[in-house]
Design a protein around this nucleic acid. Structure first.
Lengths: 204, 204
DNA sequence: AGACTAAAATGAACGTTGTTCAAAAAAATT
DNA sequence: AATTTTTTTGAACAACGTTCATTTTAGTCT
């Protein structure tokens, strides 16, 4: 039997992913080093490449985990929110910001990680991003009954990206970003404005 | 006299900045290499460090140029737009997206560049980002006469960040981004929604 | 103009990356 | 127990940013 082989390999992979996650949390995505990860996982440097194509693919594995947890956080937020689309969208946006703040380095690596030119993200991982817009779509649809389904898909992505942009620039700490202590109220104000505008345009 | 000394140094610096800009345009920020830049500028590898602290500082010099050109593009867009705040904000957002598309790698390096942990962006360069929000503020103020000046400053940054987020995720080509061929119309729809919402909230 | 001094340009060399691969260790099979 | 197959290992490699002793150039002084 060769159950030991697969099991050990799977366990090593898990250990490496967890080590990479811990390293990103401690030193950020830019501070992720192959030697530090393998030392933390308790294996040789070369072993990394028996379990994963690349260091980049290890990052993608970490991002996959993060995306999954972010997804459950968002779906939970919807169930706890009120019934109106305004309340649901407010809850989603605030939960998104809360998650980003609470898991800053992991959340940042979702959007800062780049593959070398030519390579691109595997499809299975691209699909995992879908949850970010899927949780938004039904509530936006209630606000905009005038829109076709295709238009709604686009507008949902736009809405996500708008909220995302505010959180991203704020966490980045760049000059143009909203200060961290104003982030929650600004996110709330943005969603209020967006929902008010959407309802009004749909009615006209 | 030592006018030749300073002049040569200044000219070398200019050549290096231009070379770095060209390299970023061709290979992206991640593809910027000290050896390629110095080869392109026609000087030795070590000469780079007589003119600039770091390769990072060379990127900041390039970003400074880009920010300046982006600033003039945005101010020009306002003068060409109609008189209503809605028209001004539409013109600004669309011009921002156009600039990002037309100068993709340079625009991306404005937001993708990171300094090593501990170091942070020099103040003079932080200040250069101000133009991004300064062009927005007066038009948003007309839509929200109910807001205090401090609240307006925050909301201006939020508004910029929202539009920026949509452009950024679209150009990134990640799953959640708006497809490039829908970007212009989605930006327009977002600004329409934001301005409609703002006007309604101010009136209430 | 030529000798001398100060400054700047140079590129070989260093430390640190990610990645590879011949050799060693471990596991499976006979 | 011996043999074959597979996996793990870490020294070695190429590519990177950065440094610094040396060389070259520019400025100054008889």
């Amino acid at each position: 039997m060769s159950t030991t082989r697969e099991a050990k390999k799977a366990e090593l992979k898990k250990r490496l992913i967890e080590a990479a996650e811990a390293e990103i949390i401690e030193h950020g995505l830019a501070g992720l080093k192959a030697r530090a990860v393998t030392a933390r996982a308790g294996c040789a440097l070369g072993s990394l490449y028996t379990v994963v194509e690349d260091l980049d693919m290890l990052v993608i594995e970490v991002n996959s985990r993060t995306l999954s947890e972010l997804g459950t956080a968002l779906t939970e937020a919807v169930t706890q929110a009120g019934d109106t689309p305004q309340q649901a969208l407010q809850a989603l946006a605030l939960r998104y910001a809360d998650f980003a703040i609470a898991h800053q380095p992991l959340w940042l690596s979702l959007f800062e990680h780049r593959l070398p030119e030519g390579q691109d993200i595997p499809d299975w991982h691209k699909q995992e991003h879908a949850v970010l817009v899927e949780v938004i779509a039904p509530h936006l649809a209630k606000l905009r009954p005038d829109m076709t389904q295709e238009a709604l898909i686009l507008r949902t992505r736009t809405t996500f990206a708008a909220v995302h942009g505010v959180v991203y620039l704020a966490l980045q700490g760049r000059f143009v970003g909203v200060p961290m202590d104003a982030l929650t109220s600004e996110i709330s104000g943005l969603v209020e404005t967006l929902t008010a505008g959407a309802a009004q345009i749909a009615q006209a």
